[in-house]
Simulated scan of single mutants.
Amino acid sequence: MTRSVWLKADSAVGNWEKRKKRITAGIEAGVDWVLVDDTDVERVRDLGDVNIAAFRSGGDADRLEEHSQQDVSSDAVIVGKNGEGDGSVSLPEDFSGSADISALRRSDDAANGAYIRILDENYEAFAEEAAKTADHTIVIGEDWQIIPLENLIARIGEETELVAGVTTAKEAQTAYETLEIGADAVLLDTDDPSEIHKTVEVRDELERETLDLTWAEVTSVERAGSADRVCVDTGKLLDHDEGMLVGSMSRGLFFVHAETADSPYVASRPFRVNAGAVHAYVRTPGGETKYLSELESGDEVQIVNRNGKTREAVVGRAKIEQRPMFRIEAEVETEDGTDRIETLLQNAETIKVPTPDDRKAVTDLSAGDEILVYYEQTARHFGEAIDEKIIEK
């Protein structure tokens, strides 16, 4: 499931300067959506690139006509504010027949999202009905938050994007994890930039894979002549225990550390992984792979630490140069015995791989050393795992 963060920035937040400050903080933090009044859509477009949901209060034909062009430019039109959704207008009596999004739309056919404050069980039922036709269903808990959210998660399923109202990153974590399924998104209502950043971090952490890394025994390290090798320079600084997964065989990828360590001869380059020859695979987000030769500025690669925790980084540059190489071969214990994997890495002291004690330069590796790898018994076709037998030598 892909999670998202919405940021509330409508007139209830305050004047435009206050709203602008909140929206700017959200865009800088990386929120996915901002929720504003329809009159602010073009202003938000001027602030940055973000999805915009616009509240439609409805009922004022002249006002709707006046701002119709602005509404068209929003990515979603949300109704319910100053209407049935927030209690300003009484709920329909027949929930089973009329309490879908059409009741929230009134005369507004452009609406594709509903905003509902869960004031009591009737509003919970109303949200459930609205979700049947709404692309986005935003629910704001009042005195009770967890129980109504659990009920809606259990009943709505995949009919809509369920967006839960929160005020802190801690509440966002709870909303994402409720019933082990969680809300699809959260609507964050805060002016605190640090809380916005924390909420985005919660979203990112939930999206990331945690990989089961394993130890492999080096069986051979030999000079392999020159080859075109690729340094992957990312737009992020990597931590000391981070690197990338690369290898000649898709089923067995070697953990190669970023160049975070200083040496007497070369300054550290903590944005760089000297990843090996152009033919090798590198793991990318979502469990896919790319050839190193394919990487270019703007692509994403997967960063991993020794505990298997992953994150994403954008490629700033892929630097290809001819360099002397080592061919490194290792054996991995599998359910069927052992399997051989290998890769080519540059013959240089700055390229390091994890060992049980710390790390070793590839120039110091020898048969019998243990190094960290990611192994999966699967084949690849255009970077995607497939159920097919492929022989790699």
Results as ranks from 00 to 15, higher is better:
Glu124Leu: 10
Arg251Ser: 14
Cys231Arg: 08
Val89Thr: 11
Gly337Ala: 00
Gly165Trp: 09
Ser90Asp: 11
Gly157Leu: 05
Ser73Ala: 05
Pro148Ala: 01
Leu104Gln: 02
Thr350His: 08
Pro354Ala: 10
Thr219Ile: 14
Gly59Tyr: 07
Val353Ile: 08
Glu242Val: 02
Leu47His: 14
Ala258Met: 05
Asp239His: 08
Gln322Thr: 15
Ala313Ile: 06
Arg306Ile: 13
Arg106Cys: 01
Asp120Gln: 07
Leu104Thr: 00
Trp6Glu: 08
Asn51Ser: 09
Ile138Asp: 04
Lys393His: 15
Glu331Lys: 11
Asn274Trp: 02
Ala154Thr: 04
Arg229Ile: 06
Ala216Ile: 03
Glu128Trp: 03
Phe254Pro: 01
Asn15Ile: 03
Ser73Pro: 04
Ile146Tyr: 07
Cys231Trp: 03
Ile153Thr: 02
Arg317His: 11
Gly182His: 04
Val232Tyr: 05
Asp94His: 10
Arg56Ala: 13
Ala54Thr: 00
Ala130Phe: 09
Glu42Lys: 01
Leu64Asp: 06
Thr234Gln: 03
His136Trp: 15
Asp86Phe: 08
Leu237Glu: 13
Asp387Val: 02
Asp241Glu: 13
Glu392Leu: 06
Gly157His: 10
Gln322Met: 10
Ser88Ala: 13
Phe95Lys: 05
Gln346Pro: 04
Glu321Val: 15
Glu370His: 12
Arg43Lys: 15
Glu159His: 01
Pro285Asn: 07
Glu28Gly: 05
Asp233Phe: 05
Gly308Trp: 10
Ser293Phe: 02
Gly337Phe: 08
Ala258Thr: 11
Met325Ile: 09
Glu333Gln: 10
Lys81Ser: 08
Ala216Gln: 05
His257Met: 09
Arg43Ile: 03
Tyr115Ala: 00
Thr334Tyr: 10
Asp71Leu: 12
Thr210Tyr: 09
Glu331Arg: 13
Ala127Thr: 04
Glu177His: 11
Leu237Trp: 00
Val50Ala: 01
Ser73Gln: 07
Ala175Val: 01
Thr214Asn: 06
Leu64Thr: 12
Asp239Lys: 13
Pro354His: 09
Ala183Leu: 06
Lys236Trp: 08
Leu372Tyr: 04
Leu162Pro: 02
Asp60Gln: 11
His136Leu: 07
Thr219Phe: 04
Glu201Gln: 14
Phe254Asn: 00
Lys236Gln: 10
Ile118Met: 06
Asn305Leu: 00
Glu93Asn: 08
Asp204Pro: 02
Arg327Gly: 09
Lys8Val: 02
Gln346Glu: 13
Thr2Gln: 09
Val278His: 10
Arg208Ala: 15
Ala25Lys: 08
Asp191Thr: 07
Arg208Val: 05
Lys18Phe: 01
Gly30Arg: 03
Glu300Met: 11
Thr174Asp: 10
